[in-house]
Amino acid sequence: MKPAAPAPAAPTPSAPPPTKKPATPLPPKSAPPATPAREAGDKTASSAAKTPGPAPAPLDLKELKQELKDTKAIGIFSKITLKNQMDDLLGRMRKYHQGQPNPPLTDLRRSYELLVMKLLSLVQDDDKKLASDIAASREAIWALLADPKKFATLDVS
């Protein structure tokens, strides 16, 4: 009488996008195929089917900043150098958002990626947690930098 097939146990890996949950950061490996249904109460399966990629990276800039300050994997001079280079990039991003088209966004993105690579290469051996946090936040940070409105609200002191 009731031919309606019951929905499967929803092993969909991706989480709903707008929920802001500063959960534990995911490891950078983009390979984990499917996490077992941890939060199985999700009924938005139809929208989830469209986004089969890994869950959006969590981003907690303050925590990341603090981790960078505290890590012993990077020497003090290297930290200052990285900060100098980050400040330079932020300056160029600011000019870009103010209308200066000269370093195009693709170049700025390349500079950003290079900086992240430098950072990762410095921490990946001695501070694996920080390395995975950086890798997991990489896209989210770029999204902040590239969006003029979000960039304007950034506290980059």
Partner: peptide, 13 residues
């Protein structure tokens, strides 16, 4: 530690 730090700094430049 200092040598390692300076090595990184020079590479970063």
């Amino acid at each position: 530690t200092l040598k390692k730090d300076l090595t990184s700094v020079i590479a970063l430049h």
